[in-house]
Simulated assay, not measured.
Amino acid sequence: MDSKFLDLMGNRRSIYALGENVSATNEELISLIENAVRQAPTSFNAQSTRAVILFGEAKDYFWNTIVTDRLKQEVPDEEAFKGTQARMDGFAAAKGTVLFFIDEAVIKFQQENFPIFADAFPGFAETEQGMAQFAVWTALAEQNIGGNLQHYNPIIDAAVTEHFDIPAEWTLRAELNFGSIEAPAGEKDFMADDQRFKVFGN
């Protein structure tokens, strides 16, 4: 069975060699990202995902100052930090970065109004996050724009909240870098199907 969607999924890879050579305008990229988040499924139609899109100086400040300065506190030796600095430089070289958040106020509202599912709502929100991140990443890949997903939360949360004036109720969950593909992804390995899937009935 042929599937264009599965082909798109296969094109969505972790690309680390990213650049700013993207033909789409910032406005077009913003529209694409916002629509992908908007169309992603959400349990109870909660719509708890929030996204902050960074370009230019804002993107550079995020990687070169907020993340880099925080990581230097964990790796104080300059020689040992060279590898980390190279990664930060690579992330900063991308066209932009999407910061994905969960709005905890939405979860609290759900818990108060649907108490029978109260314990499940945080997990539902995480599932929504994954689908929104995947939707954005795949939509970018369709436009031949590469991406890689990072997780420097929670150690950078306070600095991000302060610098970008993020509502206190928003919790950072991931950082998606995107840009022109300057070098392809490597080969991808898959685990054996018999360890991953079970099928019953016919």
Rank of each mutant, 00 (worst) to 15 (best):
D194F: 00
E28P: 01
G83P: 04
D165S: 11
I53L: 12
D157W: 12
E20Q: 14
A141V: 02
F91D: 08
H163G: 01
A132H: 06
D157V: 09
I15F: 15
D165W: 01
D103S: 04
G186P: 05
A174P: 02
E78L: 13
S23A: 14
P115E: 15
R50H: 01
G179T: 06
E162C: 08
Q195Y: 03
K72I: 11
F109V: 00
T42S: 15
A80T: 03
M88F: 15
F190S: 10
F197N: 00
R12F: 00
Q110Y: 07
M1C: 09
F44P: 11
E162D: 14
K59T: 10
A120W: 10
V22I: 12
K82R: 11
D77N: 07
M1V: 13
A135M: 13
R50V: 00
T171D: 13
K188N: 02
D69S: 14
N35F: 13
R70L: 07
W63D: 09
A192V: 06
K188L: 02
N64M: 11
G56D: 01
Q73D: 08
E104C: 00
A86Q: 11
P184T: 13
I155E: 13
V52S: 08
L140N: 07
F124P: 06
N144H: 09
A94S: 14
M131I: 12
D189R: 05
L172M: 14
H163M: 01
A92V: 13
T68W: 11
N64F: 04
L99T: 14
T49V: 12
A192L: 09
A36H: 03
S31R: 10
D60C: 04
N64P: 05
A17P: 02
I30N: 09
S31P: 02
A40E: 12
P154R: 10
I156K: 05
Q110R: 06
G10L: 02
P184K: 15
P154D: 10
E27W: 01
F124E: 11
P115G: 14
I116S: 15
V22K: 07
G201S: 04
L6S: 03
E28G: 02
V199D: 01
A141W: 03
A93H: 13
A139W: 03
D165P: 01
I181K: 08
T97M: 06
N177M: 09
H163Y: 06
I30T: 13
I33P: 05
A132K: 02
A46R: 13
N153R: 10
G10D: 04
N153G: 12
V67M: 02
